[in-house]
Design a binder for these strands. Structure first.
Lengths: 197, 197, 197, 197
DNA sequence: GATGAATGAGTGTTCATTCAT
DNA sequence: CATGAATGAACACTCATTCAT
């Protein structure tokens, strides 16, 4: 009997997932500055060289991780999306989805916030990320046409209905607010009052 | 009585200022990751060793720079602060001050945003920074008591009247909105609608 | 059953040996103060980073080098060790082994002397090094019991039969004595006269 | 009344002494490697620049400190030196002086041992140091002529009557021997037995 | 005589990445 | 596919020394 110690050439998705998890964890805990490839590899129980099989370089690893998270986020946000509901209800559903995601995946939120405020974010194809949110945009557009929502630039509307979620979920920014059904509902009232006509 | 004071070669304030400027510039352009002490020193036309005369270490340099900027910001925000005016006018004045500062010092805004979303921000004495904004807080408090402003946590109010400024001024987040008198006024309407009763 | 074992690129023992040699050489020639890791690496024709694969840090490199040498020394000293011989002959054999080693490996002697007089030596597990010399100790013990050797502390005996070798072999201390069969024999006479009853 | 903050040009011997003390202390505690001029200056409560008034450079500081200590040592050793006494008594007096000095100035001993085993010692004018010990040499010479002492090289005699003092006084080498009148007397017996005819 | 600011060159160490296996 | 060894370049930081005062 002969044993060849040559593993099958099976792309190991578990490994790739472990690398992403390790990246998020390390970046959140220690920041980009001290998140070296060697440390990420160690955390993921993988050789540094292995990372270079999946990603072109460190930059690619970080950007890919970001996009991956954004993708997960967008899927979460659009859950139960129903165009036929009243606009306020659509936004409210979206709003709750966002807080749900933030509560369940605080690491992802932390990572994206750190990432999107760094020059790394310039490397991301904005269009690709934005397209996930197109359905929301068309809802806002409809709201404006129906004179339900103020007729201002969609980025301004976003500043009052998308970003507050991020801010309120960010423990670095909001240290003593407690996120529960009541406060989330409260916050939505403010957001809706801001944009509604 | 006259005292002829013959000082030793004295700490050069111009140099220290150059170091801070270089820090902000480099961090904004290339991020924390690739803003090495050597590069900052070069940008400031100073020896790396000199930086260690003014700051204990790199961390100290970054944190001090952040606090310095926050201090400047707070002074700018409270300009023309007049407690006797109607609450809406006080907030509006504050709002315009904020956009003014952001327009004149985009580098400072960029830096603080990157900084406050990084683990470095954990090293800052929050209380010290917050105290600059106490006057604003007491205005909000009064508004609540007078049933002009919604009775919710001040952090939630902040998410709708302080952070929108940051978001709208951030070219990374708002790529095509044009900041002018009109849009700023517009934005304030949204903000006020959000928090007013 | 046959196992084809295909190893990764494997730690290069030649490289490690070269690092130790370079360390000894440089420390002897220029002292600890100016024996930087970079210089040692250059001397060993190796990257500075490579040294950190084999040793945790510079301290570890120096301490390991010292222990390695002590180990070699102890093996050399105990060559032809024969408990059945008269005590004087055992000591004499030991004595000649020591001078042989010192003559053949002057660098090792120089290094250990510099090392053991520096604060680095506090980092060495003394017990581990001492155990190599236990056989000699038991010989001395026997000599005392048989009333052949003076009944004094073993460290004192050591000061007269172990250290003189070091002193006489040290060109820094003994500049004009010539070490040959005659002088070594002479020195042993003095040592033996010192400790014998 | 005018006050000129221009101190008198008085060479401050206290300062110089403080520098030497600081040097010895730091080198003993942390070794040559981490005894920087800045640290020594701080320990001596003096500016780094001040040290360069008294010494050409760091090397000069270390070497001068060594010679200074050696000078003190030699003066201590030759106390009560009386040529007319029997040779054994002269040596014994010397022996006791040496242990006295070692007991009272362990820092000096530690420093000289570290120094003389480092390449720094090559920078010392050996002749200058040796001349302090010439009286001892002539005693040994006389002993040889009178057939009281073995007719061997003076360096070999030294290895048995000078160095044992160093070894026995060195806590790094002799960890559990207790130095008291009895053991010192004991050690002298061994030393004398070694060299006497 | 005495100083603290200033510095280029150097320190120990870690980096992102490649290579042979 | 996957690895740990290997590395030159870079890292944060300290060095011995000088300079203006």
């Amino acid at each position: 009997m002969i044993i060849y110690f040559r593993p099958m050439r099976v792309k190991d998705e578990l490994k790739q997932e472990a690398v992403i998890e390790a990246t998020v964890k390390l970046v959140n805990e220690t920041g980009f500055v001290s998140s070296s490839v060697a440390k990420i590899a160690k955390e993921a129980r993988v050789s540094p060289a292995t990372i270079y099989i999946y990603y072109k370089n460190k930059e690619d690893l970080l950007v890919s991780t970001y996009i991956e998270i954004k993708h997960k986020l967008s899927k979460a946000l659009l859950e139960n999306f129903d165009e036929t509901l009243p606009i306020r209800d659509i936004l409210k559903n979206f709003w709750h989805n966002a807080f749900d995601f933030a509560r369940k995946n605080p690491d992802f939120i932390k990572f994206t916030e750190q990432f999107s405020n760094s020059p790394f974010s310039d490397l991301v194809d904005k269009a690709e990320v934005e397209k996930y949110f197109l359905p929301m945009l068309s809802v806002l557009q409809r709201g404006i046409e129906q004179k339900i929502i103020k007729d201002v630039h969609y980025e301004m509307l976003g500043a009052f209905i998308f970003f507050p979620v991020m801010i309120l979920s960010n423990p670095r920014l909001c240290t003593d607010i407690k996120l529960n059904e009541e406060t989330i509902e409260q916050a939505f009232t403010l957001a809706w009052d801001a944009i509604k006509l």
